[in-house]
Simulated assay, not measured.
Amino acid sequence: MSMSVTRTFVGAAALAAAVVLGGAGSASAWYGDFHKTVDHANQFGGWIDGNGPDSYRAIGVCKDGSSRTGVTRWAGDRRGSIVTCSSGFSWRTMEHV
């Protein structure tokens, strides 16, 4: 596994408990508050407060084993980032990019 892929999944795993389980406001130590706009069985996403050039994106691993990455946005961009898994999620979170 390459170093960037390893770093991505280690960072995502570290944030998973704080962001996914903690809900809105959990990412405050990271940028600003996390604003979850969708969290269903097959779709997850939202936006993160902050100022560029820092950025974020939604990521997820689907139950069928595939991985999904949402659009990368500047911190503070309220358009958000969303991932969709037709098979449902094994896990999902927001990632600092």
Rank of each mutant, 00 (worst) to 15 (best):
M1I: 09
S2L: 06
S2K: 12
M3P: 02
S4A: 11
S4M: 03
V5P: 00
T6V: 12
T6H: 08
R7Q: 06
T8C: 09
F9R: 09
G11E: 07
G11W: 00
A12V: 01
A13Y: 02
A13F: 03
A14C: 00
A14K: 07
L15C: 02
L15I: 00
A17D: 02
A17I: 00
A17Y: 01
A18D: 11
A18E: 08
L21N: 14
L21R: 10
G22H: 02
G23W: 00
A24K: 07
G25M: 06
G25N: 03
S26K: 04
A27C: 08
A27Y: 04
S28W: 01
A29K: 05
W30C: 07
G32C: 06
G32Y: 02
D33H: 08
F34C: 05
F34N: 14
K36R: 15
K36G: 07
K36D: 04
K36T: 12
K36V: 12
V38A: 14
V38I: 15
D39M: 02
H40Y: 08
A41H: 08
N42H: 14
N42D: 14
N42K: 15
N42G: 10
Q43E: 15
F44R: 13
F44C: 03
F44M: 10
G46R: 09
W47L: 12
W47G: 08
W47R: 13
I48T: 10
N51V: 15
N51M: 10
G52E: 07
G52K: 08
G52V: 05
G52N: 02
S55D: 08
S55R: 12
A58H: 03
A58L: 03
A58V: 02
I59V: 14
G60W: 01
V61M: 14
V61W: 04
V61S: 12
C62G: 11
C62V: 11
K63Q: 14
K63T: 11
D64I: 13
D64L: 11
D64P: 06
G65N: 10
G65A: 11
S67T: 13
S67F: 11
G70Q: 07
V71F: 06
V71S: 15
T72K: 10
T72V: 15
W74Q: 15
W74L: 15
W74V: 14
A75K: 03
R78L: 01
R79S: 15
R79M: 08
S81E: 06
S81H: 01
I82R: 07
V83A: 09
V83L: 08
T84P: 01
S87G: 11
S87H: 06
G88A: 07
S90E: 12
S90M: 09
W91E: 06
W91Q: 07
R92G: 01
T93R: 12
T93K: 11
M94Q: 09
E95P: 00
E95W: 08
E95C: 00
H96C: 09
